[in-house]
């Protein structure tokens, strides 16, 4: 059942967003190259780190944190959603990778939300961005509203997603309670992953205007 939900509410929207990007000429095969190139650049700049110019390095640190969190999110999405999609429980190597990546993701996510929240706070101007909003044809800066909303959806659903697992680590709930916590986790991460895809979409959308990512 959960597998069906994943398919309907995660895979289909993700495919649709990918289709929109692809339609605008976005080449997904270059995605990992973009990611690695950006990471390399940030790492280079970080190697020149000195405490004297600490303030100047903060944006680089933020970007590295973002890339790191995105990579972990991708790992969690792959390991967490593939088993239910094929009708299995999270078990074996998937479970192992999932539980090993999860704490690092939590820590990175907390930092990310803390550092990025200010930039994603909603303002009056965002109401104007919503006017005439259409996924098929996003007008100038309209992707920013997607980014902001998906950020807050992401932040909001990360709370039950993490809390449900944190609670299950203690002998407070019985098996039935743990099943309910798992259900809360599963539903929350569905929204979490969905918002992650929208956020990524909002980041990639402006790139379709540059030649580097066009087919």
């Amino acid at each position: 059942m959960y597998g069906l939900f994943v398919f309907l509410f995660l895979i289909l929207p993700a495919v649709y967003l990918a289709y929109l990007l692809n339609k605008r000429g976005f080449a997904f095969k270059y995605l990992h190259r973009i990611y690695l190139r950006a990471l390399k650049e940030e790492a280079k700049s970080f190697s020149r780190f000195t405490f004297k110019h600490f303030g100047g390095f903060l944006p680089h640190a933020k970007r590295i944190l973002f890339y790191f969190t995105a990579a972990l999110a991708l790992i969690l999405i792959v390991t967490g959603f593939i088993p239910p999609l094929i009708g299995k429980h999270l078990y074996g190597i998937f479970l192992l990778v999932h539980i090993l990546a999860a704490p690092f993701f939590c820590a990175a996510l907390a930092l990310l939300i803390l550092l990025f929240a200010g930039q994603h706070s909603l303002g009056k101007e965002d109401i104007f961005r919503l006017k005439g909003f259409s996924f098929k044809d996003l007008h100038l800066n309209a992707h920013i509203i997607i980014r902001k909303i998906s950020f807050w959806v992401f932040a909001f659903f990360s709370i039950p997603a993490i809390a449900s697992i944190a609670l299950s680590l203690f002998p407070i709930f019985g098996t039935e309670g743990l099943d309910n916590l798992l259900l809360i986790h599963q539903i929350s991460v569905l929204f979490l992953a969905l918002s992650f895809f929208f956020y990524s979409f909002s980041l990639l959308y402006p790139l379709t205007n540059t030649k580097s990512v066009i087919k």
Binding site: A102, A110, I113, F156, I159, I162, A166, L169
Partner: peptide, 17 residues
């Protein structure tokens, strides 16, 4: 240790939100 990380992260997110 993982429990500590998760709970601390949760508190940070909760407060920020």
């Amino acid at each position: 240790l993982l429990k500590g990380i998760i709970i601390f992260s949760l508190l940070v997110i909760l407060l920020t939100v």
